[in-house]
Amino acid sequence: MDINIFRRKKKIVVSVLTEKKVKETPVRCQSCGNLIKYEDLKENLKVCPYCGYHFRMTISERINLIADSGTFSEIDTEIKTVDMLDFKDLLTYKERIKQTKKETGLDCAVITGKAKIGGFNTAVGVFAFEFIGGSLGSATGEKLTRLIEYAKKRKLPLIIVFSSGGERIQEGIYSLMQVAKTIQAVDSFKKSGGLFIPILTNPSYCGTAAIAMTGSIIIAEKGSSIGISGPRITKEVAKQNIPDKLKQAESLLQNGFLDIVVDRYLLKATIIQFLKHYNRRAI
């Protein structure tokens, strides 16, 4: 029995805070429990001013954070998610796509394009956690593959920000195959001398994390949860209790699977450093 009844139980929150969802009510930090005004939180790059907990960012916030302002231009906008299996869980998949599109304005869980970062031309992909958990579907996989080929053709450094729950269950086997497809594309990009910097944010699970782990330099945001399975599957499958700490970026760094763990404030500066070194390389 849990004796410490006063300790707040940690809830698994799976949503991204937006203006629409939090109007004037202050936001409670999931880590320290302090109340924060939403404006203050946004001002602070959605990092809790009390404890440094990194809240999830929306896709547009993320692009603004990483790309130089006004330099991002999207490619492959015509690729859209479709329901190929007539899938139905609590909602039909068709309905779910429609609803998500209405809420977020997105057609797919990833936005790809080119942008300048610190003045350097790059190919950028950003996952949208707000689009069905940022899961990897057929459209997502295709967009990623095309982005990687785009970067390979133009010899651009490739930067992908991951925030995804894994493969999209609603697309069945097709979504699983996207993992193989993308990993292969990354490999041929790397072989051609390309620099691939994946940025793992909270959360990165299963297939998408596997793709990220093939990066040339792997960066993770502080406190991100990274692992082979999300909390529910872990509970379902693992017979032993796996501490949350083991899935945090910091312990992955300790175990030797990440290059750097950074604060959100320093994320862009860190990327620029690598881009500088890459641009200065002796050819």
Partner: peptide
């Protein structure tokens, strides 16, 4: 396999190796 040891040994990194 989902477990403490396998996460420690880099399960997420290891899966891509046979695929490649």
């Amino acid at each position: 396999f989902v477990s403490k040891e396998s996460e420690k040994k880099g399960q997420i990194e290891a899966v891509s190796e046979p695929i490649l």
